[in-house]
Nucleic acid binder design. Structure first.
Lengths: 213, 213
DNA sequence: CGACGTGTTGATGGCGGTCAACTATTGTGG
DNA sequence: CCACAATAGTTGACCGCCATCAACACGTCG
């Protein structure tokens, strides 16, 4: 494994069209996976947290159809593809562990799809906050005093399929209802029970309890 | 591998909460993967066509967070999980092939997410038609005279995150513009160039050209 | 026949997009 | 230190896409 690299916020980690020869393990920070349309519109399809293998896909896909950008300052470590191939060939259960990772990604995607299709703006934003907090708690980056979440409202708009203006109004709603505090890239959940209910959040899909394979 | 089974249209193949001990290979027909919300609302997050391993996830996930239903009459064949584990342990490149399948699923999910977030109803419906036609062509189930696509407009609504009424109006628009013909569960594309342009469809993400691993 | 599911069309209203103006914050150079 | 620019956040006005409700047409099946 290569030594740890520090990547500044806003820096691209993978660009659409790349053919990477290594995959990247995220050690600290937040990344966003995004797709582009020809007209320049951008969708964020996933947020990666510490511990995620952010472009494991590139091991199997010949060419990237999307990009990944650092949202905050990140610590990463690159693992050459041939090394992964070698290790997983020797240890099939490791292959299955990584494969499980891909499967969880897909499950999260399905949840996002579901939210996009059925929930309104308030529900979608609330759900995003719940998901990120839950995932950050696992890696001990979220506690009773909240967590770092330095997305701009423009980034949030791309996550939620909303306009930046409406993200603002939606955030205001959550603040006015005293559900969350959101200042300077830091989020604190004030009333988790009500927020979960509003978001219809149910963490099962994150498979945090997944047993050994 | 178990013998081939025939499943009638509308029949559930996997229910949310199941813990399957085998995965299902779809040999003929169409299936829909769906997520449920507590309030009963349903989202279709994926359409599976012949050749797809429709619940490969269940190999690695302990419990299903979604269901799969037969949309048309389907021919399936179940493969016990221990058999898959055994084969992929012995042949790591087979494991990677199946893993690639999961990766493509995720890529399709990201496309759907992108569409949900950025396109209007006409664009989303057009894109769905393009994607299904392209995937069916590969397995020789779509030709110049169209393809079978027996989704009700209610199913379509769940796919696209629209109301059934608006799906109807949107379909009418595509018909009036003489882009598609849609009668009795059969779809024919009348002007592929214009439909692709309207949908901003670009088949790269389906990775149909993916080389050996 | 009537019941039922699906498809079709009209009327109405709300969520959220768009445009615009303004504020707050940061960083830059003079 | 201040002037200025640039980016992000905030709020208001207006309007369009799409949800909702409702009514009706059509086919299938009991």
């Amino acid at each position: 494994m290569e030594p740890v690299q520090i990547v500044p916020a806003g820096h691209p980690l993978v660009c659409p069209g790349d053919r990477p020869t290594s995959s990247t393990l995220l050690i600290r920070g937040l990344c966003a996976r995004f797709n582009l349309l020809h007209d320049g519109s951008r969708s964020v399809t996933q947020i990666s947290v510490a511990g995620d293998f952010i472009d494991l896909h590139s091991l199997l896909m010949t060419q990237m159809d999307h990009g990944i950008v650092a949202v905050s300052e990140c610590a990463i470590s690159k693992v050459p593809h041939d090394r992964i191939i070698a290790v997983t060939t020797r240890h099939p259960h490791l292959a299955r562990l990584l494969w499980l990772d891909t499967t969880i990604d897909a499950a999260i995607h399905r949840q996002w799809l579901h939210r996009m299709g059925t929930q309104d703006a308030v529900g979608r934003l609330a759900h995003l906050i719940c998901e990120i907090e839950t995932r950050l708690e696992v890696v001990d980056e979220a506690g009773p005093d909240g967590f770092e979440f330095p997305l701009t409202q423009i980034d949030l708009a791309d996550c939620l399929g909303l306009s930046a203006v409406h993200v603002n109004r939606t955030l205001m709603t959550l603040r006015r209802r005293e559900l969350v505090e959101w200042r300077g890239g830091r989020v604190r959940i004030l009333d988790r029970a009500r927020l979960w209910a509003l978001a219809e959040f149910d963490p099962v899909y994150l498979r945090l309890e997944a047993g050994p394979v």
